[in-house]
Write a protein that binds this DNA or RNA. Structure first.
Lengths: 139, 139
DNA sequence: GGGCCCGGTTACTTCAACGGTATCGGCGCT
DNA sequence: AGCGCCGATACCGTTGAAGTAACCGGGCCC
């Protein structure tokens, strides 16, 4: 039996903050290996996608970015903060809580990511087919 | 990424066999250091721009891409050929002549490059300013 | 026969990104 | 007392892209 304050807290949380990120939101096969473009560092584009729906904390980001180690995630977040793509906001609580949120500048990358994804949906199969044929033609 | 596209462009170029590429068509300061995205390898985007107006030969490409060494240019071109982004066409002449031309797949990247350039024109100054401020705030 | 030109190739080195493992500090819980 | 949570940081190793320097083959011209 949950008590009323907890229910309110959950409601607020769900209003301000979304459902957990899908751990499978990124296809482990596709990313940097095949797509002929990249936004920022290896993880930048995926982080923007994760923050698209609202702020997230460090460990929330680790779920969908399963392969990323805390070191690399921390480095990438810092670089993005330095470039004004996101803000880092620590809360004085315990256990510690830090929230990362996109700035308008960070959000401005979203159309670019959309364009890249659209390109991939249309053309990436051609690219991969060309790659396969080439291997067959000139080994 | 600055370039030397002029609206007069394609018709004239295709009819007359184009003018030499402008050796200064790429800003040596801007490219990989600042822009938060890349198309393919370091040089791929610039090569697409160079071939946008029609086929070019190896040494023609070396003029605008001043920093590129023959090794890297050769590697990049072969990777792009493998991926179906361009075709390589050697002529049986002498001195040897080889022409590289974009395929439709390669051309399909142009809108993406345009979007990236548009982003840069609008937002890159903000990013650079944020980077400067950050250095000032937390040294 | 000794240059030159074009379109490369080969061998070696450098450098930054990325990754792995281990550890920390502060607090609360049992 | 000891453990675990969260958000990191330190140290070190690997990898792969990129750069440097030198050379090559084959015609052509002097």
């Amino acid at each position: 039996m949950t008590d009323a304050t907890d229910a309110v807290g959950d409601a607020v949380r769900n209003a301000l903050r979304q459902e957990p990120l899908d751990p499978d939101m990124f296809d482990p096969v596709c990313p940097s290996s095949a797509m002929p473009f990249r936004v920022g560092d290896k993880w930048t584009g995926m982080i923007v996608r994760c923050l698209e729906g609202g702020p997230r904390r460090f460990t929330e980001l680790r779920a969908p970015l399963r392969a990323v180690t805390p070191k690399v995630l921390s480095e990438t977040l810092r670089a993005m903060e330095r470039d004004g793509l996101l803000t880092r906001r620590p809360y004085d609580e315990n256990p510690p809580r830090v929230e990362y949120a996109l700035t308008p500048l960070g959000r401005s990358l979203i159309p670019l990511l959309d364009a890249a994804r659209a390109w991939s949906e249309t053309h990436l199969p051609h690219l991969l087919a060309a790659r396969r044929n080439h291997r067959r033609d000139a080994p």
